[in-house]
């Protein structure tokens, strides 16, 4: 991915971001805590729909060169926060900055140009363009995208070649190279997710924001997709992603931010956050009269919830909680 790795990033010489063990937070870990090196800082960002506070974030920092997971139950305001940060929605109040630049009132395309690129929960690929054209569309700094140059291939032909090479390399990595001349509409749901992510990388972002990157992706592809996301960090990018699958979160996230009812209720390293009673509270509602610190407690809770008609445990939607992951994690810790 040599084309993607970028000279602009990597300000600290000699740091390997994969093995960087310096603490992420400065001071005490908790909701709204300060980071050693934040890339995004949000203050008092609120957005309400019809009287309901969808997002009400007092203070949030996203650590640079780290993979941060944004989790929370359905309706917690994760996607709305994504929309607000990237200029796709306008908050009622608040300020937020990216890389030291104030983003309040900045339109979404300018946010993307600054290097903060997002994907969407409902995948947005251009089905009537080929996979390659989708990729080329992502590339920035194209002279040929200006009307005055469009007629003259001599002006943009060179850059077109460059971005085609760049796209080819990315498509190989995402195993889409065989499909590059097909219309994107012919791709499977998972392949579209991959294409959308690859296209976002064509912008050569500093911060990649992925909204549920694993949803609908074939399990066989999940592992390689996870590796791709980890690699982004190696190349100096920062990743913020929304995910429901706790397995994924535990596997790749350096930092986890938990939202519930629009607020940040907890944050910290994955192992710590998942034991936070506030998190379990947020996911499971009022059923917290069990000991959630131990694997046994979780199992008990599960049994209680399965008997509860209003609970989703034991139904299709239960994927949010994935108790087996939490339990196995806790068991591991118990053993230690």
């Amino acid at each position: 991915m040599s084309h993607v790795s970028h000279t602009e990033v990597a300000p600290e010489e000699g740091v390997n971001y994969m093995t960087d063990e310096r603490p992420i937070a400065e001071g005490e870990i908790g909701p709204g805590c300060k980071k050693r090196d934040p890339i995004v800082i949000a203050r008092d960002v609120t957005r309400s729909f019809g009287g309901i506070n969808a997002v009400d974030v007092e203070y949030l920092e996203i650590p640079r060169h780290k993979i941060t997971a944004l989790i929370g139950p359905n309706g917690a305001g994760k996607t709305t926060l994504f929309n607000l940060l990237t200029g796709f929605d306008i908050p009622q109040s608040g300020t937020w900055e990216f890389d030291g630049r104030n983003l309040a009132g900045v339109s979404s395309y300018k946010v993307a140009r600054m290097g903060m690129v997002r994907t969407f929960q409902l995948t947005k690929v251009m089905g009537k363009l080929t996979v390659m054209e989708n990729m080329r569309l992502g590339a920035s700094r194209q002279q040929g995208e200006l009307l005055r140059n469009a007629l003259f291939k001599a002006i943009w032909g060179g850059r077109e070649k460059e971005i085609t090479e760049q796209a080819d390399a990315l498509l190989v990595k995402f195993k889409l190279d065989a499909k590059k001349d097909d219309y994107a509409a012919s791709l499977s749901g998972g392949q579209r997710k991959l294409l959308e992510m690859a296209r976002a990388l064509m912008v050569q972002p500093k911060l990649v924001m992925l909204d549920e990157p694993m949803a609908g992706v074939n399990p066989a592809l999940t592992q390689s997709l996870l590796d791709h996301i980890k690699n982004l960090k190696a190349e100096g990018m920062t990743v913020l992603f929304v995910e429901h699958d706790m397995h994924v979160v535990r596997h790749i996230a350096d930092w986890v931010v938990v939202m519930a009812e629009g607020k940040i209720v907890s944050e910290g390293p994955p192992g710590v956050v998942m034991k936070d009673p506030a998190v379990i509270d947020a996911y499971l509602g009022a059923h917290h009269d069990v000991d959630l610190g131990a694997a046994e407690g979780i199992r008990e809770l599960e049994a209680v919830l399965e008997a509860d008609e209003e609970s989703i445990v034991g139904t299709e939607d239960a994927g949010i909680i994935a108790p087996e992951v939490v339990v196995s994690g806790l068991e591991e810790e118990d053993r230690k």
């Binding site: 339109s107 395309y109 690129v117 969407f120 251009m126 064509m202």
Partner: peptide, 18 residues
């Protein structure tokens, strides 16, 4: 190409900085 992208999904095109 940007126009054809907009024809299909303008938010996606916006998210790519156009």
């Amino acid at each position: 190409r940007v126009l054809k992208g907009i024809r299909e999904d303008e938010n996606a095109v916006r998210s790519l900085g156009k």
